[in-house]
């Protein structure tokens, strides 16, 4: 974060989607990252929920930042976030029942996603509404990108294709049971795949940013 705690709109946006991209740079919000990235579609759904909650909670926290008592701060943050997560959860239950069933407890677990509390504390509690909303949007997009990327790697290695719905399936590696050559690696959708893939991605990011410096 910039030293004087004053952020510009452009700075906040760039920070979110690249220089301070959550998960990869800040190591925040790992639980949902690892748990829901078994496929691109669930990663995307989760990411969009986080974008929604992050924007709304940042806006509300920013509006009430001058009224907060320091020791009740975290409690107010979590309560605000819980309210918006309830909205997102009910929306999913009503319009995407299948995804809601698949993501299960991980949607309510957005409440304790460290990214959201960290942004409320580091950005929204110190900045105006506009900057906070942009920051929420950018951080959310950065988070969603990582989720989709991780989901894509795991889904392709585990099944050979990316499926958006029952009919729209994008085959990338032709699996053996459909007459191709690729033997699907089931371990990739298990917890092992999540940890090892994320570890290797982090390693690659470290390597790349070290070369630049």
């Amino acid at each position: 974060m910039s030293e004087n705690n004053e952020m510009t709109v452009g700075g906040a946006f760039l920070g979110g989607i690249w220089t301070e991209i959550p998960v990869l740079r800040l190591m925040l919000g790992l639980c949902p990252t690892l748990a829901v990235t078994t496929s691109v579609k669930s990663g995307l759904t989760m990411g969009l929920c986080v974008v929604f909650v992050l924007i709304c909670s940042n806006a509300v926290v920013s509006m009430m930042r001058n009224l907060l008592k320091p020791h009740l701060r975290i409690l107010m943050f979590t309560l605000t976030i819980a309210a918006f997560v309830t909205i997102a959860d009910m929306y999913l239950k009503a319009f995407q029942p299948e995804m809601s069933l698949k993501l299960g407890a991980y949607i309510p677990l957005i409440i304790v996603n460290c990214i959201i509390i960290a942004r409320a504390e580091a950005c929204a509690a110190k900045n105006g509404v506009l900057v906070s909303v942009v920051d929420g949007l950018a951080m959310g997009i950065g988070f969603t990108m990582v989720l989709c990327f991780l989901g894509a790697i795991r889904e392709v290695l585990a099944t050979g294709c990316i499926s958006f719905s029952d009919t729209a399936v994008l085959t990338i590696l032709n699996p053996v049971d459909k007459g191709g050559w690729f033997t699907p690696c089931t371990a990739m959708i298990m917890p092992v795949g999540a940890f090892v893939t994320l570890g290797l991605i982090l390693g690659a990011v470290n390597q790349l940013s070290r070369k630049k410096a």
């Binding site: 994320l198 570890g199 290797l200 390693g203 470290n206």
Partner: peptide, 11 residues
């Protein structure tokens, strides 16, 4: 990174 990979092997 190495911590994550270790965690993977543990799982």
């Amino acid at each position: 990174p190495i911590t994550l990979i270790t965690a993977g092997l543990l799982t």
